[in-house]
């Protein structure tokens, strides 16, 4: 059984569909990367998943139950960080953690200390929150989501404010949570470079619609192979490849032709027969960045 599934989930504000017919599935043990440009509908989808807002149509199965009608104890098994960190700012980190812990039915100060240590805030538990940097606040929000050892962890743009070291630590932490504590993670981001290093499965959302959902390996296969060609007359070569081989050809600013939909041997034969000098012909897989770029129509930022 999936840990999380949405079924044709839709949210409209007036006539505008912010999330449109989104179906995604997160399996146990996944680190699911939920990708999309800013404003694509990621946060709205996550808010519907957590029952914070009601869908206009469609439904959510969270750990097998509808979050809007299920017994609230369901939320003991879910940790979340949605749309940036939030705290009661007049309280310390430990006190904020204490409130969330009580909400989840716990009261063990050792758990709080252990989780603060885990996210690198062990020495700052009693420090006033106004003295926290954005990165520290982000770590604290992640720590709050980890309270009560949830089965499913939902993190919305968790790397905002984290430095590269912080991101590396978060990646290691997520791997540990999945392997050692059998946790499942849903991680949203607008940056593929962050997600591809950690995710086992990826869903891409664009303008409120799910564009694709696949494992990282499948997604790479979807992208297909590309040829990089360096030739003495790239404009002529591009025209020949388009007309004769019906290939898709793009020319990089540095003159390299990127060819899709044609065999390397056929490309080489055609160019040589037309007296063009081929100085390089390289076959390579499309990067996830390129695939994501293609899927989202080139919008990786809002």
């Amino acid at each position: 059984m999936s840990v999380l599934a949405t079924n044709h989930l839709t949210k409209r504000y007036g006539q505008q569909a912010v999330v449109n017919d989104v179906s995604l599935t997160v399996q146990p043990g996944d680190i699911y990367g939920f990708l999309g440009p800013n404003g694509a509908g990621k946060t709205t989808t996550l808010r519907m998943i957590l029952g914070l807002i009601r869908p206009t149509a469609g439904g959510v199965s969270l750990l097998g139950q509808d979050p809007l009608t299920a017994d609230r104890s369901l939320f003991r098994q879910v940790g979340s960080l949605i749309e940036g960190p939030a705290f009661w700012p007049h309280l310390s980190a430990t006190e904020n953690m204490g409130i969330i812990q009580r909400m989840k039915g716990g009261s063990d100060p050792k758990e709080i200390a252990a989780i603060l240590d885990l996210v690198g805030l062990g020495a700052t538990g009693r420090k006033p929150l106004k003295q926290f940097s954005l990165g520290m606040k982000q770590r604290l929000a992640i720590a709050m989501a980890l309270l009560g050892r949830p089965r499913l962890l939902i993190l919305d743009e968790p790397t905002n404010g984290l430095d590269p070291e912080g991101f590396r630590e978060l990646r290691a932490l997520l791997h540990r949570l999945v392997t050692e504590q059998s946790m499942t993670v849903l991680l949203s981001s607008h940056l593929l470079s962050e997600v591809e290093l950690v995710a086992t499965r990826i869903g891409v959302i664009q303008e409120g619609r799910m564009v694709t959902e696949a494992t990282v390996a499948d997604l790479r296969r979807q992208g297909g192979a590309r040829l990089e060609v360096i030739v003495n007359r790239p404009d002529l070569a591009a025209t020949l490849l388009r007309e004769r081989l019906k290939a898709q050809v793009e020319q990089n600013p540095d003159g390299v032709l990127v060819v899709q939909g044609a065999e390397a041997a056929a490309v080489n034969r055609l160019l040589v027969r037309n007296d063009l000098d081929v100085s390089r012909l390289l076959e390579r897989e499309a990067s996830l960045e390129e695939i994501f770029f293609n899927l989202t129509g080139g919008k990786t930022h809002g």
């Binding site: 029952g51 914070l52 609230r72 003991r76 939030a86 009661w88 700012p89 969330i100 909400m103």
Partner: peptide, 14 residues
């Protein structure tokens, strides 16, 4: 103001 509704409303409390 502090966006803390989401903390209370995603907790196991009605």
């Amino acid at each position: 103001q502090f966006d803390t509704w989401k903390l209370s409303l995603t907790a196991p409390i009605k």
